[in-house]
Computed example of a mutant assay.
Amino acid sequence: MSMFQIFSISGSAVSSQSQRLNVVASNLANVDTVAGPDGTAYKARQVVFQTALVGATDDQGSAGVKVSNITEDQAPGRRVLDPHHPQADADGYVTYSNVNAVEEMVNMISASRSYQNNIEVMGTAKSLLLKTLQLGQS
């Protein structure tokens, strides 16, 4: 594996973690949303990663990562008894989204750390390549 493939691998991971952070942000923004007129509430979304071949040339390539799918959690939403709420059903219950704020915060921290680690890998690879060029000039 060449040093340049490190940028492809880390770049694919950074891009995937960025998408994961966007999904987490969307989930957190909809933590307390209630069901609309159709009776369905926002459903939490999760990112599914898949190994991908990056930088493939002449049967040489490296494994990277890509987002293969974004799935919706099919768990039922939180139901709260509030008969005076405008969105309450016939029994007086309001259906909120099924997003768990604590799980989403943990997911956000994990994605953020993965993102930062891959940026650091690219920075280290850049530094090593620059040192290699400086050795060649001596």
Rank of each mutant, 00 (worst) to 15 (best):
R79T: 04
T57I: 09
S62P: 12
V48D: 08
I70Q: 01
Y93T: 07
T71N: 11
V65Y: 05
S68C: 06
G55K: 05
G92F: 03
P83E: 07
A90D: 12
V94K: 01
R79L: 06
K66R: 15
G64S: 12
S62M: 15
Y93N: 06
T71C: 07
A52K: 10
G64V: 09
L53Y: 12
E72L: 13
V54D: 05
L81H: 06
G55R: 01
K43M: 12
V31A: 05
G55Q: 09
A35E: 00
A90L: 11
R45Y: 04
Q74C: 05
P86H: 09
V48I: 15
T51Q: 15
D73R: 02
L53W: 11
N98I: 03
V47K: 00
D58H: 14
V48M: 13
T71D: 07
S97V: 04
S62L: 14
D89N: 13
H85T: 08
L53N: 14
V80P: 04
V94E: 03
V67M: 06
R78E: 02
F49V: 11
N98Y: 00
A41Q: 02
P83L: 11
A63V: 13
R78I: 01
V31Y: 01
A44L: 04
T57D: 10
R45P: 01
T40S: 12
V48S: 14
D89H: 04
K43T: 09
S68R: 12
D73Q: 04
R45S: 08
P76D: 11
D82Q: 13
A44P: 02
S97R: 01
T71I: 11
T71F: 04
S62I: 14
G61R: 08
Q74A: 12
D59T: 13
G36P: 00
D59G: 15
V47S: 00
G55S: 13
R78C: 00
D32A: 10
P83Q: 10
G92C: 06
R45W: 05
T51S: 15
V80K: 10
D82V: 07
D32N: 14
D38W: 05
E72V: 10
D32V: 03
Q60L: 15
G61V: 08
L53F: 13
S97P: 03
T33R: 01
R45K: 14
K43F: 06
S97E: 03
H85W: 06
V80H: 09
E72W: 08
Y42L: 09
